[in-house]
């Protein structure tokens, strides 16, 4: 009886979790300028409109640029940090690790305004670079967490064997360690890219004249006539995030089966 009630609760909960965002794709195909029920009919007009929105295309390219730079740099930082945490003991290890993970538990607005003040105070201009710096700061904890679980997952004797067989530390890392943690690296790249692609709060403060996609959407929300276009764009964004995350999860799981270690993104 209790079991059944819990199952029912779980199903209801998942519906509650997913239902709100599913309205976006639903309305994106609705043939009406008013985003509301009842549905009027099927159309691809809103998606077609997006093809001619040149400012949106620019925002898209900006987001791609910020996203890839963020993903690559924060994953590189994450690889170093995860390696240090899993393999070595060093001075103040716990405090330093906690400090690197700190952006995870700070109100984002604090992170955003402190960066803003320093960048402007030092006389730099706000640009895509400032957004990227902010995003790296926010994504390093995630890439580190993902990579720690994959560095933990492999047998260190493999590295020792490689060293015994005469490889140097660098070649050992390239030929033994790297292939083993490659799935973790891919999944870290995808996750950090997705976070950057969707991030709004920090980007809002640190964007100069070149908007990223969420900033562009925010600007469009003021125009009621543009609402259906925004809904279509939002649906595309949701779908892309979903696909990227599924790939990240699949890669991670394949690796888990290989190393036999259970773990999760967080």
């Amino acid at each position: 009886m209790r079991f059944k009630f819990l199952t029912l609760y779980a199903v209801a909960f998942m519906i509650f979790l997913y239902l709100p965002v599913l309205f976006l794709p639903l309305f994106s195909f609705n043939d009406s300028t008013i985003v509301a029920f009842p549905l009027k009919g099927f159309t691809l007009e809103w998606y077609e409109n997006l093809l001619s929105e040149t400012t949106m295309h620019q925002a898209f390219f900006n987001s791609m640029q910020v996203g890839w730079s963020t993903a690559v740099i924060s994953t590189l930082l994450g690889i170093c940090a995860a390696r240090a945490v899993t393999r070595y003991n060093f001075f103040a290890k716990k405090s330093i690790t906690a400090f690197v993970m700190l952006p995870l538990v700070l109100p984002e607005i604090i992170v955003a305004i402190s960066l803003l003040v320093v960048i402007l105070w030092l006389g730099f201009n706000l640009s895509l670079i400032s957004v990227t710096l902010g995003h790296i700061l926010m994504t390093v904890p995630f890439s580190t967490a993902v990579l720690i679980s994959s560095f933990e997952g492999f047998d260190q004797s493999l590295e020792e064997a490689s060293m015994d067989l005469g490889e140097g530390p660098f070649m050992t890392f390239m030929r033994v360690t790297l292939p083993m943690v490659a799935p973790g690296i891919i999944s870290s790249l995808l996750i950090t890219f997705t976070i950057s692609l969707d991030e709004f709060i920090v980007a809002f403060f640190l964007t100069g004249t070149e908007p990223t996609l969420p900033i562009y959407i925010w600007g469009q929300l003021r125009f009621i006539a543009k609402l259906p276009n925004v809904v279509a764009l939002g649906s595309i964004l949701l779908f892309s995030s979903f696909v990227l995350l599924c790939i990240a999860e699949l890669v991670r799981r394949r690796a888990q089966r290989r190393t036999g270690i259970e773990g999760s993104i967080l």
Binding site: V85, Y88, N89, K93, F99, V140
Partner: peptide
């Protein structure tokens, strides 16, 4: 200890410069 610290330092310095200092 030195190696671990050296590996950790890029992330640490980044957070120091872009979080603690700000």
């Amino acid at each position: 200890g030195v190696r671990g610290f050296a590996l950790m330092s890029p992330s640490f310095l980044f957070a120091l410069l872009l979080l603690a200092v700000p």
